[in-house]
Design a protein around this nucleic acid. Structure first.
Lengths: 192, 192, 192, 192
DNA sequence: CATGAATGAGGCTTCATTCAT
DNA sequence: AATGAATGAAGCCTCATTCAT
């Protein structure tokens, strides 16, 4: 019973922290904000997580990668990635893909490393496996860069055309670019 | 003992501010840091700039757009943009294109607006003029997104292949994507 | 080492603030002074009161009006008021009637309004009810002015004769002036 | 020529200081305010006056007492004093009698002493010479207190009836109180 | 173990004042 | 002698964090 309360409070703190850190960045978020959102005293954060930094690390740990991101048809991989970046409900992260939101805290080298690791381990690697030719990794990174750029222009910078685009609007261009960069035919969207 | 030269001191403060804000972002930079870098008392910042915010605005004001960025041959426009983003000496901004560096302060809506304005006014507009078809603006933004994404992956995230790539490595892929997105033949690099 | 008692600490801060603000005025009092008097860290003031201004407002809130000030015999009303102004133990306010002490912060319009409200609501109104004739309010204010003036000359300016006067010395003159201004016989002192 | 400029600037600084100190009090006035009002650099104040405090002392030195204040008919003395306090053009002092204005800086013991000296030397002494009986000084102070109180309630506290009263409205009450306190017939106003 | 009172460093900013030029 | 650049202390306030209870 007690135990359950503790776990529940910890979870709620984590959730509030995720939202704040995503929306306002590390520096503009105070532990008091998070505690207030949760309705508990700020000192609990130190009991449960040790420090603001540790809470940040835990709150922004890489989310579970959806199984179907990497497991579907190969020619739809890029389309699935794009949907993950811009057409997925990231309400828990303030409405943006976690990686995009984390750029708001990119003033800290630590955060940059975390972003790098996830971008490389998840996106670049999977794309590099698909690419043909000797500079496969570079081309995979260039495609990843595009996805990241779209995420940023769409939500952080809020550029007009991208901000109101639907997946269907992007699909043909996605196919063009992905096909061009990977050197093999890629679909612009998955049928589902 | 420094010379008592208002303009010189102001300029040195501005320079220090540009570097700090670019490297560490608005929140993680304190006016004392900047003053210390400059070797003067922090209160001078308020005499000369009014507030930290005003110093930030002035320090991160859009740099002069090189004349040749928009005035060269049309088919090399994207290549010139890419060089501006990743192969220009941005030492004064901590080594990154100012727009990329400013993302580190993107927790503040104000900064996001400034980024949006410059991206739209300079990059998207020029590209939209080149693009064919009815969704010209969307395609221009998609290409801008790519440039931004490259800037971020290369320096903020420091992804391995991109970080060590030379312009020549990127040129062919640039030509492919730009041509594909704009619907007309584009060069991957300019001869100079 | 002080007890960790929120209410007690708050009360001690309030007490120290009352004294400082009364003796030195708003501007010449720093929150650090008050905190030091209390023996706690200055940041507690902001936790408990929000700001220096709010602490000031709370510390100088009108003290309870003694029940017998307005409820005794009518012809002794002025005498009771005089005793309230100059012959009451205002140690908590640095030795002066709160209204007189507040004049030290009268550089701020806000404070002036508070003084006006209390003077009008408590003193002028009660006196106007007693005065005969059509300019009752003016005469009530003139009598209030006298009481205020006495308070000021006695403690702020510390004029010699008034500073050492006892109630008995003032009583006959009080009777004369009050009777003259109100147009009805008034006593110079109450028997108690 | 140079000499004249210096004296002129000094005089203008003094004038600006008088106004600021009167209207906002010592603490709320900064030397920069005064310098800005005068259109000169703040450091001139230190060259010419030594310190803010010395400027204050000089700016608020007792103004020349009008010759006719003390030299007219005896029975109109109080009337002349009242006119001096509330019906004289004190624009140079922000619209209030200098003594009343100075109460805004009464947080400092120094200022209080200066007020005391002027009140005693000018007002109390002249009135005491007129009063009959052994407690002449006390009665003179009580009358002075009234004048001060009227000045304060009228302009600092801005009590409604007093704030809009004309000299004619106050004259009869003045006669009553002055006559009562001094023990000899006094006029409520002078014929001029 | 949990609570919340207390802390002290540091944030931005304004002040009176000094000191080169 | 005059100018204005520079200073450093101190102002209010917020922060992450600690430590009694």
């Amino acid at each position: 019973m007690r135990k359950r309360d503790r776990e529940a409070t910890r979870a709620r703190l984590l959730e509030a922290a995720r939202l704040r850190f995503a929306r306002e960045g590390y520096d503009a978020t105070s532990v008091r904000d998070i505690a207030a959102d949760t309705g508990v005293d700020a000192s609990l954060i130190f009991r449960y997580f040790g420090s603001k930094k540790q809470l940040f690390d835990e709150a922004t740990a890489a989310p579970e990668i959806p199984l179907d991101l990497l497991d579907g048809p190969e020619d739809e991989l890029v389309a699935r990635m794009l949907r993950s970046v811009v057409f997925t409900d990231w309400t828990k992260y303030g409405g943006e893909h976690p990686l995009v939101a984390m750029l708001r805290s990119s003033a800290h080298e630590d955060t940059r490393q975390r972003i790098r690791r996830e971008v490389c381990d998840t996106y670049v690697r999977a794309l590099a496996d698909l690419a043909q030719g000797d500079d496969a990794e570079l081309r995979a990174e260039l495609l990843s860069a595009w996805l990241v750029g779209i995420g940023i222009l769409r939500s952080v910078v809020a550029t007009p055309a991208l901000a109101r685009a639907e997946l269907a609007d992007l699909a043909p261009h996605l196919a063009t670019v992905a096909t061009g960069l990977l050197g093999r035919p890629m679909a612009g969207s998955s049928e589902r």
